[in-house]
Amino acid sequence: MTGAVVVARKEIADHFRSLRFHIVLALVAVVGLVALYVAGQTIRQNAESATEAGSVFLLLFTTSNDRLVPFTSFLSFLGPLVGLALGFDAISGERARGTLARLLAQPIHRDDVINGKFLAGLATLAVLFVGVTAFVGGIGLLFTGVPPSSEELLRLVAFVVVTILYVAFWLAVAILFSVLFRQAATSALAGVALWLFCAVFLPLLAGMVADAVAPVGTDATVAEELRNAYWQADLSRLSPATLYDEAVGVLLMPDVRTTGPIVITQVIGMVEGKLSFLQSLLLVWPQIVGLVAGVALAFGLAYVSFMRQEVRA
């Protein structure tokens, strides 16, 4: 384990020094500021409904106007890029530089290298997202002048943790590709391809498959339509982006009570109200567990293939 810590320490220093990290940081910070500005304007325009919702502070992260998406959606889309940027050449880079053999000839275990790199990536992500969220939240506080309650802070912390988890999945995927492919460019391309697949094609595909499995005719019953909607929702949950969207949506918006499809009759009789933090957390627990499983799967694959690989592959 000490070997992994030494590797991680060096990798963290490398990340913070790298141009790549600074570009990613700038991107996320700018996106955060723009989203904050738009959210602030929107909230000011509909001041009454905002105060009605209760948690103005959290609205800063989830509100937008009809032209721009909120901060959370930005993160859902850009998060993969951050993870890929931090990991796409983790192992292939060592190989290409000729440092892998030298590194492995030191008295550390072979898995210390990949564990250290993953840990360093996680730490870097944590600094990045805690930093940006604190920055955006801080400015938002100055804007609105409404301090967050302790429950809102809890929700914010949960949001940051889930974001780190989501991006950690993409970091693990990037490390996996950096083990499998010798060329950093191939690895980066594979990562981007998977990202686009999950972001763009999986939702389309989910709709198509759902229509094929549970067709909805013009005279479809509610049950049929629901069946179709459930299929679509479940299939699109194969994408970590969907899991993330659902999780942060519920965590940051106390009045969201379900992540699945609901029919209008269910809404009509519903009593207005908010969920407590724990209730929200419980509601998206499956999504969080799904993300954890995704991270474990991707990193596990990277780990196993790295351990089985020849030093000179």
Binding site: V6, R9, K10, R97, T99, R102, Q106
Partner: peptide, 26 residues
Amino acid sequence: YLPDSVGFYDDLTAEENLLYTADLNG
């Protein structure tokens, strides 16, 4: 061990590279 095509971290100085090895050796 001196590998056949030995490589180093290009962004680090000679001394920093050696210090990393020392660190890995405790």
